[in-house]
C-alpha cells in the first residue's frame, strides 16, 4: 500500500502498511537513520521529529497520520549541520553517547521556533520528554541558550529556526 509523505521538503511515496509507525518508515523505508528507536511507547523522545511545527514522537505516530503534513527530521534541519542548535551542540560538546541527541535537537528546534528566547523553566518544560541516559542535560540547556543568542545576533525573531515549508 502506498502512502504519500512529505519529508524534509520532498514528497516521497512509501510502500508500507498505514499503521506502521512513522519512525520505522523513516528509518527502514526512507533510510533516514537520525530518528532513533528507544522505547516504542513515546516515553524517551529519541525518535522525535517535527510535524507541522510540533515536536512529535514518531515511534507512536502511525505513518498514515503524517500524510499531508510536513515532516522534518534531523537530516532536514539544515543542509550542512550549520543550524544554530547543531553548531551549539558541537561547540559545547553536548553529546556523550549521542544516541538521544537528534531527538533532543528536534525538540529544541520546535521550542525555539515558538519561543526564541526561552527561560530555563521553559526549556525544562519543552525538553522533559527527552530522556538522556548519559545525563547531558546541563549542556543541552546551555546549548539551547547559546543557539538562541546566536540566532538573535544574526537574524531577528525566530527566522533562523526551523519553519515548515508551506503545504
Amino acid at each position: 500500500m502506498s502512502l504519500q509523505l512529505r519529508v524534509n521538503r520532498k514528497i516521497i511515496p512509501v510502500d508500507a502498511a498505514p499503521d506502521t509507525p512513522l519512525l520505522w518508515v523513516l528509518r527502514e523505508h526512507l533510510g533516514l537513520k537520525g530518528p532513533k528507536f528507544g522505547c516504542g511507547v513515546g516515553a524517551c523522545g529519541a525518535c522525535t521529529v517535527i510535524i507541522n511545527g510540533i515536536a512529535t514522537r514518531s515511534c507512536i505516530t502511525p505513518a498514515s497520520a503524517a500524510v499531508g503534513a510536513d515532516v522534518t527530521t534531523i537530516e532536514g534541519l539544515s543542509a550542512d549541520g550549520t543550524h544554530p542548535l547543531q553548531q551549539a551542540w558541537q561547540q559545547l560538546d553536548v553529546p556523550q553517547c549521542g544516541y538521544c541527541q537528534a531527538g533532543q535537537i528536534m525538540s529544541a528546534a520546535a521550542l525555539l521556533q515558538h519561543t526564541p528566547h526561552p527561560t530555563d523553566e521553559q526549556i525544562n518544560d519543552a525538553m522533559d520528554g527527552n530522556l538522556c541516559r548519559c545525563g547531558t542535560y546541563a549542556r543541552i540547556r546551555e546549548a539551547i541558550h547559546k543557539a538562541a543568542a546566536a540566532a538573535n545576533s544574526t537574524q531577528s525573531g525566530s527566522s533562523a529556526f526551523h519553519k515548515p515549508a508551506a503545504t
Binding site: F37, I74, Q86, D93, G98
Partner: peptide
C-alpha cells in the same frame, strides 16, 4: 577542551550507531 570527533555526525543524524 576538545569536542568529540563524532559530534558533526551525531548532530546531523548520520548513520553512526549499531542500530
Amino acid at each position: 577542551f576538545t569536542p568529540g570527533v563524532d559530534n558533526p555526525a551525531i548532530t546531523t543524524g548520520k548513520p553512526l550507531f549499531g542500530i
